[in-house]
Write a protein that binds this DNA or RNA. Sequence first.
DNA 1: ATGGCTAATGCAACCGGTTGCATTAACCAT
DNA 2: ATGGTTAATGCAACCGGTTGCATTAGCCAT
Lengths: 337, 337
Amino acid sequence: MAVTIHDIAKKVGVSPSTVSRVMNGKAAISSETKEKIFAAMEELNFHPNSLARNLATGSSQAIALVINAEDTKSFANQFFNRSVFGIEQVAQARGFNLIITNDDSSSVSPIEQLVYAKKADGIIIPPSIVSQKLMNRLLKLRFPFVILGEPGISKNEVNWVDVNNSQGSELAVQHLAAQEYRSIAFVGESQELVFMRNRVAGFRSGLEAQHLALKDGFISECDGTSETACQSALDLLSRDHRPDAFICSDNAIAYGVISAVKKRGLRIPQDVGIVTFDNYPLARYTEPNLTAVDIDTFLLGEQAAMILFKTIEENGNRQQMLINTRLYERESTNRKN
Amino acid sequence: MAVTIHDIAKKVGVSPSTVSRVMNGKAAISSETKEKIFAAMEELNFHPNSLARNLATGSSQAIALVINAEDTKSFANQFFNRSVFGIEQVAQARGFNLIITNDDSSSVSPIEQLVYAKKADGIIIPPSIVSQKLMNRLLKLRFPFVILGEPGISKNEVNWVDVNNSQGSELAVQHLAAQEYRSIAFVGESQELVFMRNRVAGFRSGLEAQHLALKDGFISECDGTSETACQSALDLLSRDHRPDAFICSDNAIAYGVISAVKKRGLRIPQDVGIVTFDNYPLARYTEPNLTAVDIDTFLLGEQAAMILFKTIEENGNRQQMLINTRLYERESTNRKN
DNA sequence: ATGGCTAATGCAACCGGTTGCATTAACCAT
DNA sequence: ATGGTTAATGCAACCGGTTGCATTAGCCAT
């Protein structure tokens, strides 16, 4: 078997507890013994067994990110990659491991595993699996958790981090107004989704701030595919007073809107301007390429992890955070230069 | 504190070992006591503490996926998402956790943490961090590992899973030949990358199988950006005997090639056919949309995990596996219908 | 009746650390 | 000299399971 604390103790001629204390930098140990212990650890190639340590301290030294493979839309895909990196970085800096676990409806809640079996000291969960029941249970157990997105319920009672969706819409409107677009429409998915509601709210307040009217029917819902987005845009463009700009809730929708504009024989950006949420994966590659409201998902993950650790350490913290977006200007709105 | 095995034992009036055995289904226990124990576990809401169990059994019940955030190209991005899901699914089915840890050059090898501190029972690592030293160390420790991609070194001595890149190229050539393209070029990245070498090899053997000549300079290397890919394609298209088809090593390259073809005033697919590796993220959305060699990354992850578990269980297994690709036919090669 | 066998369960050591309390020795002030 | 203090370290219990070996009781064959 591997080298243990006892082997070190025996070699140096001290007790295991002394070795433990040296290893953890706790209590006062004479620098003489310290050095001998370090030397022995080096020589025997000692590595503390984290399983033993975890049991003794009652901590798993891990946090978990719960994902929902079924929910390909909101977080699973786009956000996933870089936010995982952000979370991992924060965890690693604290010597914690990051566990990833899928919790779709088919499995017998892996969250319970993590929580009850003490496999994690805290969890980050997507809004799509948040239920009142789950939240209540976690709160009652005082088990640290952060929601990666604004939850639809009890938003003031739990920790969460989200993109500032309404600010993103405002930014888009402001930019379009500056480019002298006056008749702006919004194409997105169902407003049953929290982030959609926030984007629409920002769209409204953005229009107000720019003293622009929200025309009837200019908030259009589709199912998120390019095809239905295209249809929605075609409908709007066939009106007497058609939009001269679109804000699209994601790249696939924007792609559909571009097709619609082209079908109607209109030019982008001269006749119609387009801004899309998300700078990925298409925005750079469409024709013309797209001005985009970009979301820093690395930062999102990072902040979620920070809040989680704060909760783990302080135990009783409650925090919400919005990450501001920024605009990447590209051809699709470049009317003036 | 939480309910332990001792609480159950006391309540039922048996010894902790009996409870343990019932929990694990080991040894013969009378169905009478079994039932009483199950009832007590239910009543007290007992959940075994995995930290204790792990220490006792000497297993962490976790596998780890090492990622390399610096290596955005080969695996980190595209493959990451769905292969993680595949790995996780296999792990979850076995009651294992999946740990994700980043190992870039800046950190003091988290792999050592995982291995020496016994935080994982096995690891999956990307080729980009595989060194001879690391492999030797893992082999010597008999620590189970699988490489997620064919390694550049010692490929016969270690476990790995990879996309069948050469078969992918062959598939592409075969399809192009069937569409009566005769002068096929390949645009990819540096052949220092193992997967590139395999794709080029498949390209060559595919041409041979179709009795097509490989023209001089028709294997073109760029740095992987659309811009340099476009330049490479422009060069090839300005030759006396220009290619009538391109196989592109990824979507960004294909995008550059499309631009080049359009710049030369040629039509796709009539004058020039294009096949790209990867069905994501652009293939569906380019103009025209792209015939693609698709890689099932979920399956890739799944198989990697399967091999890892086999190694963990059988201890001494050695296995390599190639995942075949399949072709999605789209407009960019649709010359005949 | 008796020895042998098996099924059911307990005992206690063990996994490898952590930590509260006790102990010892040295030093200081009175 | 004596009591008090502090620095350095050991003892032993503990974290919550697992498991080899021992024990007991019941049953069967001789």
